[in-house]
């Protein structure tokens, strides 16, 4: 076969291949940018207890993010509120079964540290309590100590030196709620207020609180550092004729109602919708080995009855519900 014939043969072969490719292109549908959803990601959420966390607004944020990022949320609720050991078991079970992503509201760092470390940074994101030091992949929440001091600052405005402030310890154990309490206590003590602790979890009967308040009438203010307990204390204080001032942290509808009727003097609120959304977003990014978008730091603000319905606070406190 001469050189010319060989060149002709190759040329015709390439021509035929080109025609074939052209036909294939006519048949193939190319994926379009931005339309491809990432594969479905199953994400486990382990709250502290049913009704305590996540709140309604926080959950709305989670669901919004889940819809945006093609994530399926699965809530594992511990039977006992604030039980670190049960949370550890649930987390252990999830990790053992190869959970792709876990959102955890830690009840007790001590009980969970080992399991958090085992879960690894690619799987676990915590809320309320920062456990990145123990090996969690991320933390979504405000600076608890700063939030506690903000609550204390509000209480300082309503109390005088030497007066007693009762600090409700609603979530026992080493966690973000306790950090708030300790930071608030430190500020109050430094400003000459007397402080007392009272263990009172959400859902518990208010007898202990009632006894303490009726004991000598020295408690001028009560500080609660999470929504569920704050709502409960608020509801109970609303029944009293001369209730002490109530300050707390939370941004639920119950807290808003307490602020409206005056049973809560001031509440330090964060945008729960943002917290929920960002938590799911970060966990999904970690699980998919992507870098989460930089959304800036979460902030909090002090709400009183007077500014509850300020347009900006409305947008942050009350998620748009249809």
């Amino acid at each position: 076969m001469s050189l010319r014939e060989r060149a002709l043969k190759w040329g015709l072969t390439l021509l035929a291949l080109g025609v074939l490719l052209l036909l294939l292109i006519l048949l193939i549908r190319f994926p379009r940018r931005g339309r491809q959803k990432p594969p479905l990601l199953e994400m486990t959420v382990i709250p502290r207890a049913e009704g305590s966390s996540p709140g309604v607004y926080l959950r709305q944020g989670m669901e919004q993010a889940a819809a945006d990022l093609n994530v399926e949320l699965r809530f594992l609720l511990p039977a006992s509120p604030g039980d670190g050991e049960e949370q550890r078991q649930l987390l252990h079970w999830e990790v053992e079964n190869g959970a792709a992503a876990v959102l955890l509201f830690p009840a007790d760092r001590g009980a969970l540290a080992e399991e958090v470390e085992r879960a690894g940074p690619a799987v676990l994101v915590t809320l309320e309590t920062d456990m990145t030091g123990e090996g969690a992949g991320g933390y979504i929440g405000v600076d608890n100590a700063a939030l506690g001091r903000e609550v204390a600052q509000a209480a300082l405005n309503g109390t005088r030196q030497g007066e007693t402030v009762l600090l409700i310890h609603s979530v026992p154990g080493d966690n973000g709620i306790t950090e708030r309490l300790l930071a608030a206590e430190a500020l109050l003590l430094s400003q000459g207020r007397r402080t007392e602790h009272l263990a009172f979890g959400a859902g518990e009967p208010p007898e202990a609180l009632s006894e303490r308040l009726e004991q000598d009438g020295t408690v001028k203010a009560v500080l609660v550092f999470e929504s569920a307990a704050l709502e409960q204390v608020s509801d109970w204080l609303a029944l009293l004729e001369t209730p002490p001032l109530l300050y707390g942290a939370g941004s639920t509808a119950g807290v808003a109602a307490g602020l409206e009727r005056g049973s809560i003097t001031a509440a330090v609120a964060q945008n729960d919708f943002s917290v929920g959304y960002l938590a799911v977003e970060q966990a999904a990014c970690l699980a998919r080995r992507k870098t989460p978008a930089d959304r800036g730091e979460l902030t909090f603000f002090t709400v009183r009855k007077e500014n509850l319905y300020d347009p900006e606070y409305q947008k942050l406190l009350f998620p748009v519900t249809r």
């Binding site: 709305q60 919004q64 919708f273 959304y277 960002l278 947008k315 942050l316 748009v320």
Partner: peptide, 10 residues
Amino acid sequence: PRQQLIYARL
């Protein structure tokens, strides 16, 4: 359609 994200400044 994403009003709450806008309100939350996300």
